[in-house]
Design a protein around this nucleic acid. Structure first.
Lengths: 164, 164
DNA sequence: TAGGTTTACTTCACGCATGAAGTCAACCGA
DNA sequence: TCGGTTGACTTCATGCGTGAAGTAAACCTA
């Protein structure tokens, strides 16, 4: 397999190209990024009609005290931008799974709350998701792999721009 | 941070829940999947108007002998489904970056070829991408991390359905 | 207390991804 | 050689994600 996407022609000046070890890491990362989301989401999508991100949103609010969270905190927890979250919560509101209200203490904040209907949706979706995670990932990794994955992810963790 | 998306209520029967180590691996994987694509694509998008997947497509054809490849091989190499590739190549054809023709030997195959215009696009995009990869990933990982990442990705590697 | 700035969020237009259904070529079996 | 099956794509409707621009509340600062 031709793993290097280096164009065959004259190479650029200032950017050092990837050595073999780097290339392998890069190839692996790319395949994770492009193939895993589908695998992880497919069961959730089929059985609960949810995106991975949507599931994370629901599950994080469901665990928060009183099942309520500020939009910005929720966005952070669910690994998404505020914009993305806003769109998702709007859809959830239309389906009756969530409700939004301004924070009485500071009107700039919006508090997102899970309804009972929304709660039932997460409860139904959770085992589906866990099964998918085991099947697509955890079952294929031993303890050392899992630890390494957690370590690497921690080092690469990065935040979307619009929440500072 | 509330890391477990386990709903607070009665837990499901048959699916074993995640233990702490598994939970960390899972959390890490999820954040990689949700946050890295954006980081990796943003520069490519801004400076070359390309998706990560689109870049991979271009760069893999550019390295193939005579800059031609069967659609199915290309889809496999670029970590995408045939359907996704077909849409991308169609757009590229409209921009004059690629051309498609049926394989003379077996009319079921389609051969995708890079034009000179397309070649110039990859050459311009490559350093942008490499810089992004270094910045978002490689620079933050030492050699052991990189090896671990490659190993884990290999174990999780999985193929889209429609290319068997 | 008025003007400007920051913070938190929302909206919308655009574009890409998905996957089910369709097309067309080649192969196979009787 | 004809009908069925497999293989390799292609198409299209639907829906989600992105990011730039907008709104509105609170916080300065003089």
């Amino acid at each position: 397999m031709a793993a290097t996407p280096e164009p065959a022609g004259p190479r650029s000046d200032d950017v050092p190209w990837l050595d073999p070890a780097e290339k392998e890491a890069w190839t692996g990362l790319v395949s994770l990024i492009l193939l895993l989301p589908g695998r992880l989401e497919a069961p959730l999508q089929r059985e609960s009609g949810l995106t991975l991100f949507e599931y994370l949103v629901l599950s994080h609010v469901s665990e928060a005290p009183e099942r309520r969270l500020r939009m910005s905190e929720l966005a952070f927890m669910a690994n998404g931008s505020l914009s993305r979250l806003s769109n998702v919560v709007k859809r959830f509101e239309q389906r009756g799974w969530m409700e939004r209200s301004p924070d009485p203490g500071d009107g700039r904040y919006t508090i997102a709350a899970l309804t009972d209907a929304g709660y039932e949706v997460v409860v139904a979706a959770a085992p589906v998701h866990v099964r998918a995670v085991r099947q697509a990932a955890l079952d294929r990794l031993d303890a050392a792999d899992q630890a390494a994955l957690a370590r690497v992810a921690e080092k690469l963790r990065v935040r979307p721009v619009d929440l500072a």
